[in-house]
Protein backbone atom coordinates (compact mmCIF):
# COMPACT_ATOMS: atom_id res chain seq x y z
CA UNK A 1 0.00 0.00 0.00
CA UNK A 2 2.80 2.42 0.84
CA UNK A 3 4.42 1.81 -2.54
CA UNK A 4 1.05 2.48 -4.17
CA UNK A 5 0.93 5.80 -2.36
CA UNK A 6 4.48 6.66 -3.40
CA UNK A 7 3.70 5.98 -7.07
CA UNK A 8 0.55 8.08 -6.72
CA UNK A 9 2.54 10.96 -5.26
CA UNK A 10 5.03 10.71 -8.12
CA UNK A 11 2.16 11.10 -10.59
CA UNK A 12 0.66 13.88 -8.46
CA UNK A 13 3.93 15.83 -8.66
CA UNK A 14 3.63 16.06 -12.46
CA UNK A 15 0.01 17.27 -12.28
CA UNK A 16 0.73 19.69 -9.43
CA UNK A 17 3.82 21.43 -10.84
CA UNK A 18 2.22 21.98 -14.24
CA UNK A 19 -1.06 23.12 -12.66
CA UNK A 20 0.74 25.55 -10.33
CA UNK A 21 2.34 27.17 -13.37
CA UNK A 22 -1.02 27.51 -15.06
CA UNK A 23 -2.54 28.88 -11.86
CA UNK A 24 0.09 31.58 -11.69
CA UNK A 25 -0.62 32.81 -15.19
CA UNK A 26 -4.39 32.50 -14.82
CA UNK A 27 -4.18 34.68 -11.75
CA UNK A 28 -2.67 37.30 -14.07
CA UNK A 29 -5.50 36.80 -16.54
CA UNK A 30 -3.70 34.61 -19.09
CA UNK A 31 -5.35 31.34 -20.06
CA UNK A 32 -3.18 28.71 -21.70
CA UNK A 33 -5.18 25.64 -22.65
CA UNK A 34 -2.12 24.27 -24.44
CA UNK A 35 -0.43 22.91 -21.31
CA UNK A 36 -0.15 19.54 -22.97
CA UNK A 37 1.86 21.08 -25.80
CA UNK A 38 4.17 23.03 -23.47
CA UNK A 39 4.78 19.88 -21.44
CA UNK A 40 5.43 17.79 -24.56
CA UNK A 41 7.90 20.33 -25.94
CA UNK A 42 9.76 20.87 -22.67
CA UNK A 43 9.69 17.22 -21.73
CA UNK A 44 10.98 16.16 -25.12
CA UNK A 45 13.76 18.72 -25.41
CA UNK A 46 14.71 18.07 -21.80
CA UNK A 47 14.78 14.34 -22.51
CA UNK A 48 16.97 14.81 -25.58
CA UNK A 49 19.36 17.07 -23.66
CA UNK A 50 19.58 14.68 -20.70
CA UNK A 51 20.01 11.65 -22.92
CA UNK A 52 22.72 13.17 -25.08
CA UNK A 53 24.61 14.77 -22.19
CA UNK A 54 23.95 12.16 -19.53
CA UNK A 55 23.03 14.95 -17.14
CA UNK A 56 19.73 15.59 -15.37
CA UNK A 57 20.81 19.17 -14.77
CA UNK A 58 21.13 19.89 -18.46
CA UNK A 59 17.85 18.14 -19.13
CA UNK A 60 15.95 20.25 -16.62
CA UNK A 61 17.70 23.44 -17.73
CA UNK A 62 16.72 22.87 -21.36
CA UNK A 63 13.17 22.03 -20.28
CA UNK A 64 12.88 25.23 -18.25
CA UNK A 65 14.23 27.33 -21.11
CA UNK A 66 11.90 25.63 -23.58
CA UNK A 67 8.96 26.30 -21.28
CA UNK A 68 10.00 29.94 -20.94
CA UNK A 69 10.23 30.33 -24.71
CA UNK A 70 6.85 28.76 -25.33
CA UNK A 71 5.42 30.91 -22.54
CA UNK A 72 6.87 33.95 -24.26
CA UNK A 73 5.35 32.83 -27.56
CA UNK A 74 1.95 32.39 -25.94
CA UNK A 75 2.41 35.78 -24.30
CA UNK A 76 3.25 37.41 -27.61
CA UNK A 77 0.07 36.16 -29.23
CA UNK A 78 -2.14 36.71 -26.20
CA UNK A 79 -0.75 39.96 -24.82
CA UNK A 80 0.90 41.86 -27.67
CA UNK A 81 -1.33 40.68 -30.49
CA UNK A 82 -4.36 40.26 -28.26
CA UNK A 83 -5.56 37.20 -30.13
CA UNK A 84 -7.92 34.58 -28.76
CA UNK A 85 -6.12 32.79 -25.94
CA UNK A 86 -7.99 29.53 -26.35
CA UNK A 87 -7.06 29.35 -30.02
CA UNK A 88 -3.43 30.19 -29.20
CA UNK A 89 -3.35 27.47 -26.58
CA UNK A 90 -4.80 24.89 -28.94
CA UNK A 91 -2.20 25.85 -31.54
CA UNK A 92 0.56 25.37 -28.99
CA UNK A 93 -0.82 21.95 -28.18
CA UNK A 94 -0.90 20.96 -31.85
CA UNK A 95 2.55 22.42 -32.40
CA UNK A 96 3.87 20.50 -29.41
CA UNK A 97 2.35 17.23 -30.55
CA UNK A 98 3.55 17.56 -34.13
CA UNK A 99 7.00 18.95 -33.48
CA UNK A 100 7.88 16.48 -30.73
CA UNK A 101 6.56 13.58 -32.77
CA UNK A 102 8.86 14.59 -35.59
CA UNK A 103 11.95 15.53 -33.62
CA UNK A 104 11.74 12.98 -30.84
CA UNK A 105 11.63 9.76 -32.84
CA UNK A 106 15.37 9.11 -33.00
CA UNK A 107 15.34 9.25 -29.21
CA UNK A 108 12.57 6.72 -28.68
CA UNK A 109 13.28 4.44 -25.76
CA UNK A 110 14.45 4.65 -22.17
CA UNK A 111 16.49 7.61 -20.94
CA UNK A 112 19.27 5.39 -19.68
CA UNK A 113 20.30 7.45 -16.64
CA UNK A 114 20.32 6.23 -13.07
CA UNK A 115 16.87 6.70 -11.50
CA UNK A 116 16.38 10.18 -10.05
CA UNK A 117 17.03 10.09 -6.29
CA UNK A 118 14.16 10.17 -3.82
CA UNK A 119 14.02 11.90 -0.44
CA UNK A 120 13.25 9.58 2.46
CA UNK A 121 11.46 7.29 0.04
CA UNK A 122 9.21 10.07 -1.23
CA UNK A 123 9.31 11.36 -4.80
CA UNK A 124 11.63 14.39 -4.77
CA UNK A 125 9.43 16.40 -7.07
CA UNK A 126 6.38 15.92 -4.91
CA UNK A 127 8.27 17.78 -2.22
CA UNK A 128 9.25 20.35 -4.84
CA UNK A 129 5.56 20.71 -5.71
CA UNK A 130 4.71 21.32 -2.06
CA UNK A 131 7.46 23.93 -1.79
CA UNK A 132 6.25 25.58 -4.99
CA UNK A 133 2.68 25.69 -3.69
CA UNK A 134 3.85 27.48 -0.55
CA UNK A 135 6.05 29.84 -2.56
CA UNK A 136 3.30 30.69 -5.04
CA UNK A 137 0.76 31.18 -2.28
CA UNK A 138 3.20 33.49 -0.51
CA UNK A 139 3.96 35.35 -3.72
CA UNK A 140 0.33 35.83 -4.66
CA UNK A 141 -1.15 36.64 -1.29
CA UNK A 142 1.67 38.03 0.83
CA UNK A 143 3.74 40.17 -1.48
CA UNK A 144 3.24 43.42 -3.33
CA UNK A 145 4.17 41.76 -6.60
CA UNK A 146 1.50 39.13 -6.00
CA UNK A 147 -1.11 41.79 -5.39
CA UNK A 148 -0.18 43.45 -8.64
CA UNK A 149 -0.29 40.12 -10.51
CA UNK A 150 -3.75 39.41 -9.17
CA UNK A 151 -4.91 42.90 -9.93
CA UNK A 152 -4.01 42.60 -13.63
CA UNK A 153 -5.93 39.34 -13.66
CA UNK A 154 -8.98 40.92 -12.06
CA UNK A 155 -9.23 44.32 -13.64
CA UNK A 156 -6.34 45.33 -15.88
CA UNK A 157 -7.78 48.78 -16.62
CA UNK A 158 -7.82 49.72 -12.95
CA UNK A 159 -4.39 48.19 -12.48
CA UNK A 160 -3.03 50.22 -15.39
CA UNK A 161 -4.62 53.35 -13.97
CA UNK A 162 -2.82 52.61 -10.72
CA UNK A 163 0.49 52.69 -12.53
CA UNK A 164 0.95 48.94 -12.93
CA UNK A 165 2.37 47.66 -16.20
CA UNK A 166 -0.24 45.13 -17.27
CA UNK A 167 1.78 44.03 -20.26
CA UNK A 168 4.99 43.61 -18.29
CA UNK A 169 3.36 41.64 -15.48
CA UNK A 170 1.41 39.43 -17.83
CA UNK A 171 4.59 38.63 -19.76
CA UNK A 172 6.32 37.84 -16.48
CA UNK A 173 3.48 35.52 -15.50
CA UNK A 174 3.41 33.83 -18.91
CA UNK A 175 7.15 33.17 -18.87
CA UNK A 176 7.22 31.94 -15.26
CA UNK A 177 4.20 29.76 -15.95
CA UNK A 178 5.87 28.37 -19.06
CA UNK A 179 8.90 27.44 -16.98
CA UNK A 180 6.81 25.68 -14.34
CA UNK A 181 4.68 23.85 -16.88
CA UNK A 182 7.89 22.91 -18.69
CA UNK A 183 9.28 21.62 -15.42
CA UNK A 184 6.15 19.49 -15.05
CA UNK A 185 6.77 18.05 -18.52
CA UNK A 186 10.38 17.31 -17.65
CA UNK A 187 9.42 15.68 -14.35
CA UNK A 188 7.28 13.31 -16.39
CA UNK A 189 9.84 12.56 -19.11
CA UNK A 190 12.96 12.48 -16.93
CA UNK A 191 11.69 11.17 -13.60
CA UNK A 192 8.17 9.74 -13.58
CA UNK A 193 8.36 7.70 -16.78
CA UNK A 194 11.79 8.31 -18.35
CA UNK A 195 11.00 6.64 -21.64
CA UNK A 196 10.39 8.69 -24.76
CA UNK A 197 7.57 7.72 -27.06
CA UNK A 198 5.49 9.92 -29.30
CA UNK A 199 2.64 11.70 -27.55
CA UNK A 200 3.85 10.16 -24.31
CA UNK A 201 1.76 12.45 -22.07
CA UNK A 202 -1.54 11.09 -23.31
CA UNK A 203 -3.61 13.93 -21.87
CA UNK A 204 -1.88 14.59 -18.55
CA UNK A 205 -1.55 18.27 -19.48
CA UNK A 206 -5.31 18.56 -19.81
CA UNK A 207 -5.78 16.97 -16.39
CA UNK A 208 -3.41 19.58 -14.95
CA UNK A 209 -5.45 22.29 -16.66
CA UNK A 210 -8.66 20.93 -15.16
CA UNK A 211 -7.06 20.87 -11.72
CA UNK A 212 -6.61 24.63 -11.80
CA UNK A 213 -10.35 25.12 -12.23
CA UNK A 214 -11.11 22.56 -9.52
CA UNK A 215 -8.77 24.31 -7.12
CA UNK A 216 -10.55 27.67 -7.11
CA UNK A 217 -7.16 29.09 -8.08
CA UNK A 218 -5.71 28.13 -4.70
CA UNK A 219 -2.18 26.63 -4.80
CA UNK A 220 -2.80 24.27 -1.88
CA UNK A 221 -5.99 22.95 -3.40
CA UNK A 222 -4.06 22.35 -6.61
CA UNK A 223 -1.69 20.04 -4.75
CA UNK A 224 -4.55 18.37 -2.89
CA UNK A 225 -6.42 17.83 -6.15
CA UNK A 226 -3.29 16.45 -7.79
CA UNK A 227 -2.80 13.96 -4.97
CA UNK A 228 -6.46 12.99 -5.09
CA UNK A 229 -6.36 12.44 -8.83
CA UNK A 230 -3.01 10.64 -8.61
CA UNK A 231 -4.35 8.16 -6.06
CA UNK A 232 -7.61 7.72 -7.92
CA UNK A 233 -5.82 7.10 -11.19
CA UNK A 234 -3.47 4.59 -9.61
CA UNK A 235 -6.30 2.90 -7.77
CA UNK A 236 -8.31 2.62 -10.95
CA UNK A 237 -5.54 0.40 -12.31
CA UNK A 238 -5.46 -1.82 -9.23
CA UNK A 239 -8.78 -1.54 -7.38
CA UNK A 240 -8.46 -5.04 -5.98
CA UNK A 241 -5.65 -3.90 -3.72
CA UNK A 242 -8.06 -1.84 -1.65
CA UNK A 243 -11.50 -3.00 -2.68
CA UNK A 244 -11.28 -6.62 -3.79
CA UNK A 245 -14.27 -7.90 -5.76
CA UNK A 246 -16.10 -4.59 -5.64
CA UNK A 247 -17.22 -3.60 -9.15
CA UNK A 248 -15.62 -4.80 -12.35
CA UNK A 249 -12.25 -3.38 -13.37
CA UNK A 250 -13.90 -1.55 -16.22
CA UNK A 251 -16.04 0.41 -13.80
CA UNK A 252 -12.96 1.24 -11.74
CA UNK A 253 -11.11 2.46 -14.82
CA UNK A 254 -13.96 4.84 -15.50
CA UNK A 255 -14.09 6.04 -11.90
CA UNK A 256 -11.70 9.03 -12.13
CA UNK A 257 -13.74 10.37 -15.01
CA UNK A 258 -17.06 9.66 -13.31
CA UNK A 259 -15.82 11.61 -10.32
CA UNK A 260 -14.75 14.40 -12.68
CA UNK A 261 -18.34 14.59 -13.94
CA UNK A 262 -19.61 14.70 -10.37
CA UNK A 263 -17.20 17.51 -9.58
CA UNK A 264 -18.41 19.43 -12.61
CA UNK A 265 -22.01 18.99 -11.46
CA UNK A 266 -21.03 20.40 -8.08
CA UNK A 267 -19.22 23.23 -9.81
CA UNK A 268 -22.35 24.08 -11.74
CA UNK A 269 -24.54 24.52 -8.66
CA UNK A 270 -25.62 28.02 -7.72
CA UNK A 271 -23.91 27.79 -4.35
CA UNK A 272 -20.67 26.83 -5.94
CA UNK A 273 -20.89 29.27 -8.79
CA UNK A 274 -21.33 32.11 -6.38
CA UNK A 275 -18.22 31.00 -4.56
CA UNK A 276 -16.46 30.29 -7.83
CA UNK A 277 -17.37 33.64 -9.24
CA UNK A 278 -15.75 35.26 -6.25
CA UNK A 279 -12.52 33.38 -6.88
CA UNK A 280 -12.14 33.26 -10.62
CA UNK A 281 -9.93 36.02 -12.01
CA UNK A 282 -12.38 38.41 -13.64
CA UNK A 283 -10.22 39.13 -16.66
CA UNK A 284 -9.19 35.53 -17.27
CA UNK A 285 -8.76 34.86 -20.96
CA UNK A 286 -9.58 38.42 -21.98
CA UNK A 287 -7.15 40.42 -24.06
CA UNK A 288 -6.33 43.82 -22.60
CA UNK A 289 -6.00 46.86 -24.79
CA UNK A 290 -4.72 50.01 -23.23
CA UNK A 291 -7.09 52.93 -23.56
CA UNK A 292 -5.61 55.99 -25.18
Amino acid sequence: MSSLLVISLAAAAVFAIAALGELLEQRAGILNVGLEGVMLLSGTFGFIAAKTSGSYLQGFTVALLTGALVGLLHGFFSITLGSNQVVNGMAIWILGFGLTTYIGYPYTGPLGLKPFPTVAGLPTFFLVALALAIAIWFLLFKTHLGLKLRSVGENPSVAEASGISVTGLRYLAAILAGMLVGLGGAVYSLVYNPVWNYNYLQGWGFIALALVFFSLWNPFLVVAGAVFFGILWQLSLYPELLFPNVFSRYIWRAMPFVITIVVFIVLSTRWFRLRWGATKPEALGLAYQREN
Binding site: Y192, V195, Y200, Q202
Partner: peptide, 29 residues
Protein backbone atom coordinates in the same frame (compact mmCIF):
# COMPACT_ATOMS: atom_id res chain seq x y z
CA UNK B 1 -0.35 3.62 -22.83
CA UNK B 2 3.07 4.52 -21.44
CA UNK B 3 1.95 5.83 -18.05
CA UNK B 4 -0.44 2.96 -17.40
CA UNK B 5 2.15 0.43 -18.54
CA UNK B 6 4.62 1.87 -16.09
CA UNK B 7 2.10 1.87 -13.24
CA UNK B 8 1.16 -1.73 -13.95
CA UNK B 9 4.80 -2.81 -14.17
CA UNK B 10 5.55 -1.06 -10.88
CA UNK B 11 2.61 -2.71 -9.19
CA UNK B 12 3.46 -6.15 -10.55
CA UNK B 13 6.90 -5.68 -9.03
CA UNK B 14 5.85 -4.20 -5.70
CA UNK B 15 2.49 -5.80 -4.97
CA UNK B 16 2.88 -9.16 -6.71
CA UNK B 17 6.57 -9.62 -6.09
CA UNK B 18 7.37 -10.28 -9.74
CA UNK B 19 11.09 -10.33 -10.44
CA UNK B 20 10.76 -11.17 -14.14
CA UNK B 21 8.55 -9.01 -16.35
CA UNK B 22 7.59 -9.17 -19.97
CA UNK B 23 5.09 -7.22 -22.02
CA UNK B 24 2.48 -7.48 -24.72
CA UNK B 25 2.40 -3.72 -25.12
CA UNK B 26 4.46 -1.29 -27.15
CA UNK B 27 6.10 1.37 -24.99
CA UNK B 28 9.44 1.06 -23.23
CA UNK B 29 7.94 1.67 -19.79
Amino acid sequence: LPAEERAVAETLATQYNCDVLTQQTDSGS
